[in-house]
């Protein structure tokens, strides 16, 4: 079985500081992988590269058979279009340390936004999916609350 995620030779620098010095990683479907390291060692940076919140200079990331963020074009390494990148980002899920919920939307609308705009789901269907998942995590009662009205755990 071919791996779902393949990272090879990933390099990432912030200015003169090289944070990722050639990371190689392979993951199979169903794997649960923990990254462990001291503070500032680049765990978050690696995740942000996979989600393309950071550009990287060298190496490649392949997710479900797609090259993430860049393509080889006649020997040149070219960044994908903004639209293409947005589509790829939707393939991954990212839980932030600071939640980053949208404060001007209810819990339900927070969940629906991505479904409607990037998965192009019809509104009714998105609502049903979002309600189902909020119900499953025990937030059914609070779906019409704004993030500011939710406790830390609920957020």
């Amino acid at each position: 079985m071919s791996p779902i995620l393949t990272i090879s030779g990933l390099h990432k620098s912030f200015g003169k500081v090289e944070v990722l010095k050639g990371i190689d990683l392979t993951m199979q479907q169903g794997d649960v992988v923990s990254l462990i390291g001291s503070s500032g060692s680049g765990k978050t940076t690696l995740l942000r590269c996979v989600n393309l919140l950071e550009d990287f200079e060298q190496g490649s990331i392949e997710l479900a058979g797609q090259s993430i963020g860049y393509k080889q074009d006649g020997g040149q390494r070219r960044r994908l279009s903004e639209r293409e990148i947005a589509r790829q980002r939707a393939m991954t899920g990212m839980a932030f340390q600071q939640f980053n919920l949208f404060p001007h939307m209810t819990a339900l609308r927070n969940v629906m936004l991505g479904l409607i705009k990037t998965k192009k789901m019809p509104k009714d269907e998105a609502r049903a999916v979002a309600e189902k998942w909020l119900e499953r995590v025990g937030m059914g009662q609070r779906r019409d609350h704004y993030p500011g009205q939710l406790s830390g755990g609920q957020q």
Binding site: N51, L52, L53, E82, R83, A86, R87, Q88, R89, A90, M91, T92, G93, M94, F96, Q98, N100, L101, F102, P103, H104, L113, G114, K117, T118, K119
Partner: peptide, 26 residues
Amino acid sequence: PQGQTEAAKSIGLTFGQTFVYVLLPQ
């Protein structure tokens, strides 16, 4: 906060969508 843009990006919104649905309303 920068995190708002990143959260919007990570659920796959383009820049235009991020602006219209996330940044502008706030």
